[in-house]
């Protein structure tokens, strides 16, 4: 798991690209397009609405979507190997409900957090093992996992449970001020950004991370090359499970309650953010930074629609659908002749 290549010389996309003789710029186009879109949306919003052009509006994108950023990071790992994880939304809800219930039962906050993280990772590990060793489609396995986790939520509690633990409340209400300004973010944002940084490092600079790209490019070739395909394929689902549980904790900080019906459909947001961020669903191509941008674009769309005021909230869904379409077509044009 240590770095085997000098850091800073190549970006992951560039080195992966060279190995398959594609020009790196082409593969970065979707991510760059997402960045341009983000800037354009923000500029457009700033021109149109008073009070839009402020650092806090920008930072609130992070504050409101911290948990989604973490989910998208986990999803990026899974999708990079050509898989998919539909269970993340349910695991978010399960983590929240479980923490709320245990805290209400008098547990200390730190053991609760650890337990939730271990459970999420274990669920991901189990799903990954079934996917790899029993050769069942990821879509189906994680679908069953989604039902199981959501069902366990109901078993724990049908009612919404408030969280009053001091540590959780401190996380929820705490504000970290940017040095020398009035601008602030929540502690959750720092956690989310740390996850992004670690994930980017792991994908770019570790043997495991390079293996993830290799398995996504061609699982068979990766196996023939002697890469530990089993460890990588099972590992990415464990990572996604961990990220879902962590996302669940961040969501619990944000909502200060645990509710069985929370985060329904969040898996679709995470997948959409990952795709909009430039990760190919067929695997092998993508960046964590792209997924972060994807989440920010989704958040910005919601902000614009709330600033507009007259637009109904369901326009969010339609706009996300249209964006998804645009990026899928863009990917198709860029990677023409690539795997279907």
């Amino acid at each position: 798991m240590t770095a085997t290549m000098p850091t800073g010389t190549t970006t992951p996309a560039a080195s992966a690209a060279r190995s398959r003789s594609w020009r790196p710029s082409r593969r970065l186009v979707p991510t760059l397009a997402t960045f341009v879109l983000f800037v354009a949306l923000f500029a457009g919003g700033s021109l149109r609405y008073d009070g839009f052009f402020s650092g806090q509006v920008l930072l609130n994108l992070f504050v409101d979507n911290a948990f989604l950023i973490v989910l998208a990071v986990g999803m990026t790992f899974v999708i990079l190997t050509g898989g998919i994880d539909l269970s993340v939304g349910s695991v978010v809800a399960l983590s929240g409900v479980l923490s709320a219930k245990l805290l209400a039962a008098g547990w200390a906050p730190v053991p609760v957090m650890l337990l939730v993280l271990v459970l999420g990772t274990a669920l991901g590990l189990a799903m990954g093992a079934v996917i790899h060793y029993l050769d069942v489609q990821p879509f189906v396995v994680t679908l069953a996992g989604m039902f199981l986790a959501r069902g366990l939520c109901y078993v724990v509690s049908v009612e919404s449970i408030p969280i009053r633990d001091p540590l959780f409340t401190a996380f929820a209400t705490g504000a970290v001020y940017l040095p020398g300004t009035e601008l602030y973010v929540s502690p959750s944002v720092l956690v989310a950004l740390a996850v992004v940084a670690i994930a980017a490092y792991v994908l770019a600079c570790t043997r495991f991370g390079r293996g993830v790209y290799a398995v996504g490019g061609s699982s068979h070739s990766a196996m023939l090359m002697g890469l530990p395909v089993a460890r990588i394929r099972v590992g990415v689902y464990a990572i996604s499970g961990f990220c879902s549980a962590l996302g669940g904790l961040l969501f619990a900080f944000y909502a200060l309650s645990g509710y069985s019906l929370a985060a329904v459909g969040t898996e679709l947001d995470a997948i959409a953010a990952t795709v909009i961020g430039g990760t190919l669903l067929s695997g092998g191509v993508g960046l964590v930074a792209g997924s972060l941008l994807g989440v920010l674009v989704l958040g910005l769309i919601q902000t614009v629609i709330s600033f507009e005021g007259t637009l109904s909230s369901w326009w969010t869904k339609i706009v996300i659908g249209v964006l998804l379409l645009a990026f899928v077509v863009l990917q198709r044009v860029i990677v023409r002749g690539g795997p279907r």
């Binding site: 369901w314 869904k317 339609i318 998804l324 899928v328």
Partner: peptide, 20 residues
């Protein structure tokens, strides 16, 4: 386009359309 993502577009946007 991959079926799962091609139909995801309508899955996301479709419910918005129905609300519309």
């Amino acid at each position: 386009i991959q079926p799962i993502i091609a139909t995801l577009v309508l899955m996301t946007a479709g419910r918005g359309l129905a609300m519309l």
